[in-house]
Amino acid sequence: WIARINAAVRAYGLNYSTFINGLKKAGIELDRKILADMAVRDPQAFEQVVNKVKEALQV
């Protein structure tokens, strides 16, 4: 799951650890299995999560 998430978030200019930190700051409580599945099956929803994380990180 970690490898999938890392590959997906790198397309948005983040790395895995920064993304996970941003999830916590944004108050998003999705587990890694769901995030990895979302990255593959629903990229639009995953992009929305990434955008919320970037807002929380102020990137």
Score class of each variant (00 low, 15 high):
residue 53 V to Q: 00
residue 49 V to P: 00
residue 16 Y to M: 01
residue 51 N to V: 12
residue 48 Q to V: 13
residue 38 M to G: 02
residue 45 A to I: 10
residue 4 R to A: 13
residue 52 K to E: 13
residue 42 D to Q: 10
residue 53 V to W: 01
residue 51 N to I: 14
residue 3 A to G: 08
residue 44 Q to C: 08
residue 54 K to S: 06
residue 42 D to S: 11
residue 16 Y to T: 03
residue 31 D to H: 14
residue 56 A to E: 09
residue 58 Q to S: 14
residue 40 V to W: 13
residue 53 V to D: 00
residue 52 K to S: 10
residue 16 Y to F: 05
residue 35 L to H: 02
residue 45 A to K: 12
residue 26 A to K: 03
residue 37 D to R: 13
residue 14 L to A: 01
residue 40 V to L: 08
residue 26 A to I: 07
residue 50 V to E: 01
residue 59 V to K: 08
residue 11 A to Y: 06
residue 3 A to D: 07
residue 16 Y to L: 05
residue 15 N to V: 12
residue 16 Y to G: 09
residue 33 K to T: 06
residue 30 L to A: 09
residue 16 Y to E: 02
residue 36 A to W: 15
residue 32 R to N: 15
residue 14 L to Y: 04
residue 45 A to S: 11
residue 52 K to H: 07
residue 36 A to K: 03
residue 34 I to V: 07
residue 6 N to V: 03
residue 41 R to A: 13
residue 6 N to Q: 09
residue 47 E to Q: 09
residue 6 N to I: 03
residue 57 L to K: 03
residue 17 S to M: 11
residue 4 R to K: 14
residue 44 Q to H: 12
residue 33 K to Q: 11
residue 44 Q to P: 12
residue 9 V to W: 01
residue 15 N to F: 05
residue 33 K to V: 07
residue 16 Y to D: 02
residue 35 L to C: 03
residue 54 K to P: 00
residue 51 N to H: 13
residue 12 Y to M: 03
residue 31 D to E: 12
residue 38 M to S: 03
residue 13 G to Y: 02
residue 29 E to Y: 15
residue 18 T to L: 12
residue 4 R to D: 13
residue 40 V to S: 13
residue 23 L to R: 01
residue 5 I to D: 00
residue 50 V to H: 01
residue 18 T to I: 10
residue 22 G to M: 03
residue 57 L to P: 02
residue 48 Q to A: 13
residue 9 V to T: 03
residue 52 K to A: 09
residue 26 A to N: 04
residue 4 R to G: 03
residue 55 E to C: 07
residue 52 K to W: 10
residue 44 Q to A: 13
residue 50 V to D: 00
residue 20 I to R: 08
residue 3 A to W: 04
residue 28 I to K: 02
residue 43 P to W: 06
residue 27 G to T: 06
residue 20 I to G: 03
residue 17 S to C: 15
residue 55 E to Y: 12
residue 30 L to P: 10
residue 15 N to H: 08
residue 40 V to H: 13
residue 5 I to Y: 02
residue 48 Q to S: 11
residue 57 L to I: 12
residue 46 F to M: 03
residue 24 K to Q: 10
residue 57 L to Q: 05
residue 39 A to C: 04
residue 29 E to C: 14
residue 10 R to A: 13
residue 19 F to R: 00
residue 52 K to Q: 09
residue 33 K to A: 09
residue 20 I to Y: 06
residue 30 L to R: 08
residue 58 Q to F: 12
residue 31 D to W: 06
residue 22 G to R: 02
residue 17 S to H: 10
residue 38 M to H: 02
residue 7 A to Q: 15
residue 41 R to D: 14
residue 44 Q to N: 11
residue 24 K to C: 10
residue 53 V to P: 00
residue 33 K to G: 09
residue 2 I to M: 04
residue 12 Y to S: 02
residue 4 R to W: 07
residue 30 L to W: 07
residue 8 A to C: 03
residue 15 N to W: 05
residue 10 R to M: 10
residue 29 E to A: 14
residue 37 D to L: 08
residue 29 E to N: 14
residue 3 A to P: 05
residue 22 G to L: 03
residue 52 K to Y: 08
residue 38 M to I: 09
residue 17 S to P: 06
residue 41 R to Q: 14
residue 25 K to Y: 06
residue 26 A to R: 03
residue 22 G to P: 01
residue 34 I to N: 11
residue 40 V to T: 15
residue 12 Y to G: 01
residue 17 S to V: 08
residue 31 D to N: 13
residue 59 V to A: 14
residue 38 M to W: 08
residue 34 I to D: 08
residue 24 K to M: 11
residue 20 I to V: 08
residue 17 S to A: 08
residue 41 R to T: 13
residue 57 L to A: 07
residue 8 A to P: 00
residue 26 A to T: 13
residue 42 D to H: 09
residue 52 K to N: 08
residue 4 R to N: 06
residue 41 R to L: 14
residue 49 V to W: 03
residue 35 L to A: 05
residue 1 W to S: 15
residue 3 A to R: 11
residue 2 I to A: 03
residue 58 Q to E: 11
residue 8 A to N: 02
residue 32 R to K: 12
residue 46 F to A: 00
residue 51 N to D: 10
residue 11 A to D: 07
residue 43 P to E: 06
residue 42 D to A: 08
residue 55 E to T: 09
residue 1 W to P: 12
residue 50 V to N: 00
residue 2 I to S: 00
residue 33 K to R: 10
residue 19 F to S: 00
residue 39 A to G: 04
residue 21 N to S: 13
residue 47 E to A: 12
residue 53 V to R: 01
residue 18 T to H: 06
residue 53 V to E: 00
residue 14 L to E: 01
residue 57 L to E: 04
residue 21 N to H: 13
residue 39 A to Y: 04
residue 34 I to A: 08
residue 18 T to K: 12
residue 47 E to W: 04
residue 35 L to G: 01
residue 13 G to C: 06
residue 24 K to A: 08
residue 43 P to D: 04
residue 33 K to I: 12
residue 10 R to H: 09
residue 35 L to V: 05
residue 2 I to P: 06
residue 43 P to I: 09
residue 22 G to D: 01
residue 33 K to Y: 12
residue 14 L to T: 01
residue 7 A to S: 07
residue 10 R to N: 08
residue 57 L to C: 04
residue 6 N to T: 15
residue 6 N to F: 03
residue 58 Q to M: 07
residue 27 G to S: 08
residue 21 N to G: 08
residue 13 G to R: 04
residue 36 A to S: 06
residue 51 N to P: 00
residue 52 K to T: 09
residue 23 L to D: 00
residue 42 D to G: 03
residue 5 I to R: 00
residue 41 R to E: 14
residue 54 K to N: 06
residue 22 G to V: 02
